[in-house]
């Protein structure tokens, strides 16, 4: 199963340990995390499910292309890393 890792900076505000979840896209993997941890959702995506402006998601070291739909594919042994973008300062 893909592993989802969140920036340590986010842990200051909301509990978000690493998680191994089912999912073939970034969206489905993150949805699986959010289902178990609903409060986390609003810290990563906006009210329409789009990646927040100053957040970035890497899949196996590459930034996702589909920031709105989060449809980028994830391998079963892939790693999704959720972090702050430098654009926010």
């Amino acid at each position: 199963m893909p592993r989802v890792v969140f920036t340590p900076n986010l842990r200051r505000h909301v509990d978000c340990p690493e998680a191994d979840v089912a999912g073939v896209t970034v969206r489905s993997a993150l949805d699986a995390v959010f289902a178990a941890n609903p409060k986390l959702r609003g810290y990563v995506v906006d009210e329409h499910g789009r990646l927040r402006t100053h957040m970035v998601v890497y899949v196996d070291g590459e930034p996702v292309k589909d920031r709105d739909g989060l449809g980028d594919a994830v391998r079963t042994d892939g790693e999704i890393y959720v972090m702050q973008a430098l654009s926010g300062g």
Partner: peptide, 8 residues
């Protein structure tokens, strides 16, 4: 306003 993480 957490900036990166939105408004709470």
């Amino acid at each position: 306003d957490h900036g990166h993480f939105g408004v709470k």
